[in-house]
Design a protein around this nucleic acid. Structure first.
Length: 468
RNA sequence: GCUCCCUUCGUCUAGAGGCCUAGGACGGAGCCCUCUCAAGGCUUAAACACCGGUUCGAAUCCGGUAGGGAGCGCCA
């Protein structure tokens, strides 16, 4: 039997890190077993589902590179099927109509809570459904009242639930629309899902779903409940910390491979290995190696991974991303060769592409002011001779390249009898406007002769006139 | 309240009775390298929640305690 997994988000918000991790594990498991990964949108809550959220989820999945093999399917398109299955359950006396009003239910719940009992439906319509004029009944599933239901969870192990703890859940609302625990079962059954991999907030729903499978005469799938993902402070993930759309990560300058690599290590491990190529993840992934306990997001580690991928990634590909980030801060660059060269020069000093774009502005546009501290420190009467000397020597260079520039730098240093830093740093401030840049020879090469000389002249003038 | 789940360095984790004076990674600290910032190299601090039991021997097995979480909707 080929493995079939599904990722089934409800489109009520964006795809956040938790959902992305669940999708990743489903995707990896399917890929590992040469099976299918199915995308199913659980949009039966028409009040809260939005097309924007659907799109955001699709975009997120695509950005992370988890292409679905089937779907996306929409539950709202399966209403006929749910009705049919509900009717089947009704006919087989595995479900019944319930005419209890919401008020009645509410009262029941309050009384049970007051008695310190677990709130649940008491089954009053189960045996004697009293139809009431004008009341559209809901359909309830007749849950077994005795015995136990066992979930042989692939990550939790054997979890046993007393059926007496479960009540008769509503599978169809009074308006005829189906509810979650029912649609999940029908779809998982119809789509021949073999492994349900989902967040562990669903563990408690599992025995109910298994009972519905049983009533339908269908074999339940295997289940694997993943531990939660917590915010950096160990608190539940919320909009405040971490629960942003995965697309926000792109905007913040992260690479999808870094996000995926970060996510795969949240709750899963393969010995001590930290860096995984996509192929390795697929090859090594196994639910048996998934952890039971919740894990907190560690932004620093994500940053570290991101830089790793920036350093090791293909500069030409990264160049396009850098161009995108530059554009977002108002700089349009069409020279992809230069972009790639900047990526090479900046890779080891940028943790995100966004940082890289910000640190690379001076390569593409003129800066207005010098960084005050850097100017005070490096633009002095003492550095003026060095600046003039290097300016003159640079102007005479035949081939404008980093190695040639480096030789000039060393020649200048030797002639002046000072340390390299005494010359390099003032030059750096002169051409970049600040105290930070890639190695000065590389920086000058990238800037080009004309620009470098012009900025050097500007700096010399600035010092001569006592700041301008 | 009831049911279910979880518990190794700050964080992610290795560990499936002796290989553990508990390993790796991020982050931290220190040193080295160095034209800035980084990157890199080396070193280092830092954890088995607690209490009992089983065993010659327990981070690993069992029980309890504590703490955390989830669920208990005509939401998904």
């Amino acid at each position: 039997m080929t493995v079939r997994t599904r990722f089934a988000p409800s489109p009520t918000g964006y795809l956040h890190i938790g959902g992305a991790r669940t999708a990743l594990f489903c995707w990896l498991y399917a890929r590992h077993h040469h099976g299918q990964f199915i995308l199913r949108i659980e949009d039966t809550d028409r009040e809260r589902s939005t097309p924007e959220a659907v799109q955001a989820i699709l975009d997120g999945i695509a950005w992370l590179g988890m292409k679905e093999d089937e779907g996306p399917f929409y539950q709202t398109q399966h209403f006929e099927r749910y009705r049919e299955v509900a009717q089947k359950l009704l006919n087989a006396r595995h479900a019944y109509h319930c005419y209890c009003s919401k008020e009645e239910l509410e009262q029941m719940r309050n009384e049970q809570l007051a008695r310190k009992q677990k709130p649940r439906y008491d089954g009053r319509c189960r045996t004697h459904p009293v139809s009431r004029a004008g009341v559209q009944p809901v359909i309830r599933f007749k849950n077994p009242q005795s015995g136990q239901t066992t979930v042989n969870d692939l990550v939790r192990g054997r979890v046993v639930f007393e059926n007496s703890e479960l009540d008769d859940l509503i599978i169809a609302r009074s308006d005829g629309t189906p509810t979650y625990n029912f649609t999940v079962v029908v779809d998982d059954m119809d789509m021949h899902i073999t492994h349900v991999i989902r967040g562990d907030d669903h563990l408690n729903n599992t025995p109910r779903q298994i009972n519905i499978f049983n009533a339908l005469g269908a074999k339940p799938p295997e289940y694997a409940h993943l531990p939660m993902i917590l915010g950096p402070d160990g608190a539940k993930l919320s909009k405040r910390h971490g629960a942003v759309s995965v697309m926000q990560y792109r905007e913040d300058g992260y690479l999808p491979e870094a996000v995926i690599n970060y996510l795969v290590r949240l709750g899963w491990s393969h010995g001590d290995q930290e860096i995984f190529t996509r192929e390795e993840m697929i090859r090594f992934f196994d639910i048996a190696d998934v952890n039971k306990s919740a894990s907190a997001i560690n932004p620093d580690k994500l940053l570290w991974l991101n830089q790793h991928y920036i350093k090791s990634g293909d500069p030409d590909r990264l160049a396009a991303e850098l161009g995108w980030h530059l554009m977002r801060i108002g700089i349009t660059v069409t020279d992809t060769v230069k972009l790639a060269a900047v990526v090479r020069a900046q890779a080891e000093r940028a943790r995100t592409l966004k940082e890289m774009a910000e640190a690379s502005r001076f390569f593409f546009e003129e800066f207005t002011d010098y960084d005050a501290k850097a100017a005070v420190k490096n633009f002095t009467v003492e550095t003026l001779p060095a600046l003039r000397e290097i300016r003159a020597r640079l102007a005479a260079i035949e081939e404008w390249s980093a190695p040639a520039i480096h030789r000039v730098l060393e020649g200048t240093v030797a002639a002046l009898g000072v340390k390299l830093g005494k010359v390099a740093q003032p030059v750096r401030v002169a051409v970049s406007g600040g105290g930070v840049s890639p190695p000065i020879d590389v920086t000058l090469e990238l800037l080009g002769r004309e620009c470098s000389l012009r900025r050097l002249d500007r700096a010399i003038g600035w010092i001569e006139t006592g700041r301008s």
